[in-house]
Design a protein around this nucleic acid. Structure first.
Lengths: 259, 259
DNA sequence: TATCGCTATATAGTTAACTTTATAGCGATT
DNA sequence: AATCGCTATAAAGTTAACTATATAGCGATA
């Protein structure tokens, strides 16, 4: 279940009131019926017997709060079947969920992904941000600042502390509390090289070693071992040099998973 | 699958080489065996017959590339069973995937969630950011800027255009291309009220109507109907007034789902 | 060396979801 | 009014995954 050569895939089953309601076969059938225009032709398309198809359709139509298929008996062509809006929506929902699940399976199979952290795991396969600097940590301190915002201190596994200035309403929206797992996001251009002093002072002020310079991208290493990506502003430093960097807490974005 | 009163839950089945490998019952059994220290006691705990448990364990141990349980026969206590590292990891992976799936199910049941957009759907239940302003749109234009960064123009459904300045490497990492679905994230403090002029000029410069003022939070409405959250800096405007706002493209973060 | 609780394995019955096959009934179209 | 292809329903056989029950074998421990 962990290495590359294996063919692991996820199947989604939706239970309604503790009983199976949707599974891959049923959803494929639903799609086939929608395409063919009748249960009998859809069953053929899906490669199952008419009886099984009809039983499935009957069960779904009865148990869903609204039918998924509207069935016409007799008349033109002998009758037919059509997806209702509800049916269409269920199909979309199911496909979306399957897609999400398959992404998760593929991403989390990698042995290097930590499975302890929900946030860490989810961020591997879901929304990726353009921020070069992404640090997983926990809320360490929550302080009201003068501006009316909250100053949130995040401590990483490595011990590095990063402060973020967040509006109170955002704090509430993310349900930030001590020990909550959060990710601090910092765009590279928000990392300021501070040549005026070589003293660390104030929040988010660190001394860092220059690891590499390429084009205008600067890679730094903090004493804690964490890497920091910055952009070169005025005079470029040299490789191996130690510089002082500063990050405005207002430029730090926090991300979390609401429980 | 759509309204509140229903009891919809997701079940995860993992297929290995087209055949069922892990399902909720098997994983519960694995956990029970780990807790009890033997297959027979674990089966009792999980409420299934010893035969079924043993068949499941045998199948999993044989088909996984490494056994999940190490079984000892005879000796102290007659033998016993223990989770291997691989078994432990599978269990964690499974729990994480189930958790993610359940979150997705709960979030996407809401009728108001658009099921057309993968990014829109995922962002509903996964990582939430502290940025108050979040706009779903598509990449409209990709232009190299003087700084060496890329200026990415995002157009929303409403027609609103937002520009973001992103490093080239981030562009590549997110695989940004024309028409790619992205989300623009802007912290409220990054929205600057520009009193010097009432002319819209340059990128990310909009005239906006003041909808509400509470404490230091400002809610604005753009002509396109989109809402914009800002922080009050110097002199607070009045409700109903029209103001000009400006957002530095470097302060705009983009998020996407890599395909 | 006998005991113990476990792994390891077999046999037979049960269940749920299928399968094939068959047939009744419907109602616009011809 | 006859036709047509569908929905609607039933009966009987198949399969996979269980159930319960039984038994052989193991090896540290007492």
């Amino acid at each position: 279940m962990a290495d590359s050569g294996m063919n692991l895939e996820a199947q989604l089953i939706l239970n309604l009131d503790q009983k199976m309601f949707a599974n891959p076969r049923r959803m494929a059938l639903l799609a086939a019926i929608a395409e063919a225009g009748s249960v009998s032709q859809g069953a053929k398309l899906a490669g199952i017997s008419y009886k099984a198809a009809w039983d499935a359709v009957k069960d779904m139509n009865q148990r869903a709060e609204e039918p998924l298929l509207s069935l016409a008996v007799g008349g033109k062509g002998g009758g037919g079947a059509e997806l209702t809006d509800m049916g269409e929506r269920l199909l979309k929902l199911y496909r979306l969920l399957s897609d999400i699940q398959q992404r998760a399976v593929v991403a989390l199979q990698d042995r290097s992904v930590p499975l302890e952290s929900l946030l860490g795991a989810i961020s591997q396969f879901s929304v990726q941000s353009s921020a070069r600097n992404q640090y997983l940590g926990r809320v360490d301190q929550l302080m009201p600042a003068d501006s009316g915002d909250m100053l949130v201190s995040v401590v990483l596994e490595s011990g590095l502390k990063i402060s973020a200035s967040i509006t109170r309403s955002s704090c509430e929206r993310l349900q930030l509390a001590l020990q909550r797992e959060v990710m601090a996001l910092i765009k590279a251009p928000a990392v300021i090289l501070d040549s005026s002093t070589d003293q660390e002072a104030g929040p988010n002020c660190y001394s860092a070693e220059v690891i590499s310079i390429y084009d205008q991208d600067l890679v730094l290493r903090l004493p804690t071992g964490d890497m920091l990506y910055a952009r070169i502003s005025a005079q470029p430093p040299e490789k191996g040099q130690t510089v002082v960097v500063r990050i405005d807490p207002a430029q730090v974005m926090l991300a979390a998973i609401t429980p």
